[in-house]
Design a protein around this nucleic acid. Structure first.
Lengths: 125, 125
DNA sequence: TGGCGGTATAACCATATCGGCATACGGTTA
DNA sequence: TAACCGTATGCCGATATGGTTATACCGCCA
C-alpha cells in the first residue's frame, strides 16, 4: 500500500511552513545525519536483514543498533516485520536511496571542485 | 560554474562506503536537520538575502543566524558574496530544494497514511 | 583617521544525542 | 513451564549542538 510516487497533497507544499512542520522535516533529515544510520541503510540496500545480521554487517553493538533502527523506523525510512523469532528490517521505499544519491552527488561535485582549486593542473591527488 | 547536473563521478558511488565518507554525507544531512536552518533555506527560496534581512524574516538572533549560515555554507547549501557592507547569502543550487521537496513528499505520504489509519471513514480531521 | 553599521567569533550554559552496560520483553523449543 | 535466543529498553557518562551575550573584525564614510 501507498505507492509513494504519484501522491502529492498540499499539506507541506508551498506555504510559509509552521515551526512544527519545520521541526518534522528537520527530524527526518536528522535521522539521516548519522554515519551509523547511513551504514544501516546501505546494508539494507540489497534486501531485508534481521537485527542480528545487521550487527554483523555494520559492526554496531546490538543495543545501539536497535536504537538506531527505532529512529529510522520512526522517521519512516525502514519497515519492520517479524519472521519467527527474528525481526527483519527493510528500506521503506526507493526514495530513501534517492535522497542519499542526491546528497552524494552534491558531495562528489563539491569534492571535485575543491580538488580543482587545490591542484588545478594535477591529474589526481 | 559547475552546473551540478550532468556531473557524476565514481567517488561516492557504488562501493562499500568508508566511515569517513559516511561521516561526510551524514554531516550534510545533519546540516538540514535543524528547523532554523530549514527556515533560512526557505527564506532564500526567492532570491539572495543579506544577514540583516534574514534576521528579520527568520526571527533568529544575529549571532545565532550567522553560525547557522556558516554551517550551511560549509555544507555547500548556500553561497556567500559581499555587496558593499552587506553579505548576501543565496541557495547554492536547485538540488537543495529538491532534497527538501523529496523529504516533504515523504512526510505528506506518511501523514496521510497515519490519518487514514486514525480516522478511516472521516473526511478530514 | 576615527567612528559606525554589518557580520563573524568567543565564551558560556542548557540540552540533546551517542555508545555501552545491564536488563527486561517476547517468542520459541524442549 | 522453564530455559533460551533475539530484540528492545532504561540508565549512565562523554560529547556535540543550539541559543544568548559580549566582543572582535571589517568595509565604508565623515
Amino acid at each position: 500500500m501507498s505507492t509513494r510516487r504519484p501522491v502529492r497533497h498540499a499539506t507541506t507544499a508551498r506555504r510559509t511552513p509552521t515551526p512544527a512542520l519545520l521541526e518534522l522535516v528537520a527530524g527526518r533529515f536528522r535521522a539521516l545525519g548519522e554515519p551509523a544510520r547511513l551504514g544501516i541503510l546501505h546494508a539494507l540496500e540489497h534486501g531485508p536483514l534481521s537485527v542480528t545480521a545487521l550487527v554483523e554487517r555494520t559492526g554496531l553493538g546490538q543495543a545501539n543498533l536497535s536504537k538506531h533502527l527505532q529512529q529510522l523506523h520512526a522517521a519512516g525510512f525502514v519497515s519492520r516485520s517479524r519472521r519467527g523469532m527474528f525481526v527483519d528490517y527493510a528500506l521503506a521505499d526507493a526514495d530513501v536511496l534517492r535522497l542519499c544519491e542526491l546528497m552524494c552527488g552534491r558531495l562528489d561535485d563539491d569534492l571535485a571542485a575543491t580538488q580543482a582549486v587545490m591542484a588545478p593542473q594535477r591529474r589526481s591527488a
